[in-house]
Design a protein around this nucleic acid. Sequence first.
DNA 1: TACTCCCTGGACCGATCAGTCTAGCCAGAG
DNA 2: CTCTGGCTAGACTGATCGGTCCAGGGAGTA
Lengths: 227, 227
Amino acid sequence: MTAPARRARPGPGPANPAVPTRDRIVVAATQLFQQRGYHAVSTADILDHARAPRGSMYHHFPLGKEQIAVAAVTRIRGEVLALLRTLQARGRSLEDTLRVVADGMARWLRTSEWREGTMLASTAVGATPELPELHAAIRGAFAAWCEHLTGRLVDGGWDAAAARAMSQTIVAGIEGAMILARIDQDERIVPRVAAMLARLIATGNAPRRGAARTPRSRRARAGRSGR
Amino acid sequence: MTAPARRARPGPGPANPAVPTRDRIVVAATQLFQQRGYHAVSTADILDHARAPRGSMYHHFPLGKEQIAVAAVTRIRGEVLALLRTLQARGRSLEDTLRVVADGMARWLRTSEWREGTMLASTAVGATPELPELHAAIRGAFAAWCEHLTGRLVDGGWDAAAARAMSQTIVAGIEGAMILARIDQDERIVPRVAAMLARLIATGNAPRRGAARTPRSRRARAGRSGR
DNA sequence: TACTCCCTGGACCGATCAGTCTAGCCAGAG
DNA sequence: CTCTGGCTAGACTGATCGGTCCAGGGAGTA
């Protein structure tokens, strides 16, 4: 318990010159922040991983570490949103989407040997109230995901308020499941929780509406309320 | 974005001599870890808050910071478990228990101005795979909570596997809801998610009961491992 | 009073932190 | 060719990190 000696690994081989330095930094930072969280990652770690010199980093990110973290969060936000939209475009139901996402995340957990995996939580913790820019970026990412899910639920006939609560439950459940799965090193927790959430979606449609099953009669709902 | 200057506050008034130094350290560490996570809290922070000198800390915790974190996690584990058991002893249903816990946590979030609140997640992130003792402590705490919840569900007639999945969903959902609520600074998210989970419990008892789910006679659930 | 032992108090250490600075590389423009 | 400016390169800084060390303080016992 004396010395961490975490800096042992010198980085993953030589830099790939085909990838611009800025992108290499963002990719490395994304991985590291997901692994260990904002405060446990040093700029030297990022530079090591990205095979970039210090000067380049402060050239591309003059505001320093927090700015890099914002870029990383924005990247994650976009990737997840793209996946959600792709699945929607392919006609997958929301329950199906949940399953696919959960399976993908479980695989990701395992292949990274439970080192990566908590999408934003690693970065979210400790970003309040210092680091206001990072805080805002994380908040925006969660909001974007929830908004997408809420939209899909409303399209499916959900009451706006219920849809909002449901989408928050989904995001919270998945994020929490990732934390539990990492700690337990048991990736099956994620699909398990996702199945529970899918059941909640299936049975819970429009809790104060008439039918319990999806009525498919969309288009007629009132305007969105939230935010 | 230059200097954090977080060390500005000198600590919360003079030390209370009635509380032993060791306890003051654990209490301060618990609060700080919940606020900012393991890596973002320095030993100097803890000492400041606890109004204790450096020597005392390494007298009581010769293994250093990680040992203090383990003590803090153990403390949280015990407190939550005690609350769950108290509510059970008072005859509250599991759904009711969930509501009470969620309301309490929401209040806690607000009164701490969204600085404390994510029970273990703050500490959990980044505790893998270094910090093995801390990792084990967090894992044990989550396991203890899940075990309690699983026991109550099985008592209520749930199939063992389904009960386990449900209890993990509950813990994951609450933990995730706390993260979302902190980021959004909106404590209503927690009771909202809790209500969803309660609905899942109410409707989900023995899912697909008639179908191929193994009923599996519940055995006497083994000794509950309190603290 | 004298002695013991648990605990306090804080100076101190080498390592590492995020961030600064400046010297040069090198491709494209003129 | 020269010049220029975006980018690289890494030495350097002061602050802070977790951890070590040891000189006492002071209650209990004799």
